[in-house]
Computed example of a mutant assay.
Amino acid sequence: MLGTVLAASTAVLAAPVTGLLGHRALRRSRNARLMRIGTPDGIDEQGYVRIGGIEQWISVRGEDRHNPVLLELHGGPGAPTSVFGPRTRAWERHFTIVRWDMRGADRTLARSGADGQGGPTFDQVLADAVEVTRHLRVRLGVDRVLLVGSSYGSVLGLRLARSHPELYSAYVGTDQNIHDAGRDTSTHRALLERLRAAGKRRDLAAVEAMGPDRHRWTARQRAAYAKLSATSDPMTLHTMRTVVIGSLWLSPLHSLRGIGSYFKGMSHSETITDGTGHFDDWADGTDFDVPFFVFQGAQDVLTPPERARRFFDDVRAPVKGFALIEDAGHFAAFRHPDRFLELLLTMVRPAIGGPTARPQAG
């Protein structure tokens, strides 16, 4: 979902390209300095690891190797969260953050090209995630990994946490997607209402023609639907422009050509959603053998907190917790990274064997 939302906003980059390259260079340099890790027990490893038969990009960063390892599953599909590194720099004081460009995304796509991605398909990426986790256990010498699924990454995250409790110390979902095989059509009705109120008759007709049954949608229709869902909501659109596109524009990891490659990865990854319209998280099971948490934007129209809460209420887990992040819709963890970190430290860290803590000022 994140990927299709970003693809709708490429025009936002047009003005800075023509007039603010000097400002961009200054800010990117500042962000690069912010990202330096100089602590004695710190780790900053970035490179390719052979996963699922292809070279895939993995970043491992943190100020103390003894901190819990946190594997973040990015959304999109095809939109790695490495662009948010400067915004989430404080997370690396308390966790070793692993960010992985999934099959078909960004640097992984650039390494072996479109023909070397094998689709990609949902099942392939799910298998890759298990292999990445096992690699991290060996490389970092840990028994279990804290799993954080963000947006479309949370679709993968639920299945990993349910099927492989031996690999994960806890599961945290944010922008949590809940599939119910299409029974709940409230988000579709809400989108129609927003388009009707805005007088977007052409878009309204297109969504009405698609109908609420996601089983019948193509990958391109799902992408178009996500784009309209995001751009028709003022909070999502504002966050997309200021937080998401702003972070990509100022990312020290992405040249101008790299930004283009980032968008190519999102387009290429649309096929991951093929065949997922029948997914039913309730039918798959609400029993989890790991601590289970959902931290959702209170005003999220893409992955509504009401649906996430209904699923959460049915979950049985050793420990569980739910929290709303106010003044946030989709991308809540990156709009308010300080609040998300506080939830990790006060709710999740004690459940995985660490002390209750609060983020440091600054």
Rank of each mutant, 00 (worst) to 15 (best):
F331I: 03
D180W: 02
A114R: 13
P318S: 06
G265I: 05
L256I: 13
F322H: 01
T356H: 10
I54Q: 06
Y171A: 06
G260I: 02
G116T: 02
G321I: 04
R194W: 10
V148F: 08
K200V: 05
H215V: 04
R201T: 10
A197H: 10
G104Q: 08
H278G: 11
D184V: 07
N67P: 02
K200D: 15
P305T: 04
H188K: 01
L71V: 02
V207S: 04
V243R: 04
F322I: 02
P165M: 08
I245H: 11
S29M: 08
V172C: 07
G265M: 05
T239M: 13
A219T: 01
H336M: 06
R103E: 01
T121G: 13
F288S: 06
L26C: 03
L228I: 00
K264M: 07
L21V: 08
G258A: 03
T174S: 15
R30S: 10
D41N: 12
I272D: 00
V49N: 03
I325C: 02
R137L: 07
T133F: 06
D300S: 12
A110C: 05
T231R: 14
L73M: 08
R257E: 14
D274Q: 14
D314T: 05
D143F: 01
D128N: 01
E166G: 09
L158Q: 15
P305L: 00
I245W: 13
F331A: 14
Q176N: 13
A161M: 14
S232P: 12
E166I: 12
L34I: 04
R309H: 15
I51G: 00
F334K: 00
A15Q: 11
L248T: 09
G116L: 08
I58E: 07
V145D: 08
P212W: 07
R107G: 01
D327L: 05
G329L: 12
T39M: 09
S267C: 06
I97C: 08
S29L: 07
S251M: 12
T185A: 09
V243H: 11
A105G: 07
L34S: 06
T303P: 13
R137F: 00
I325Q: 03
S163N: 14
V145Y: 09
L109E: 10
R162S: 13
V294W: 01
G104K: 09
V155N: 10
A224P: 00
R87W: 01
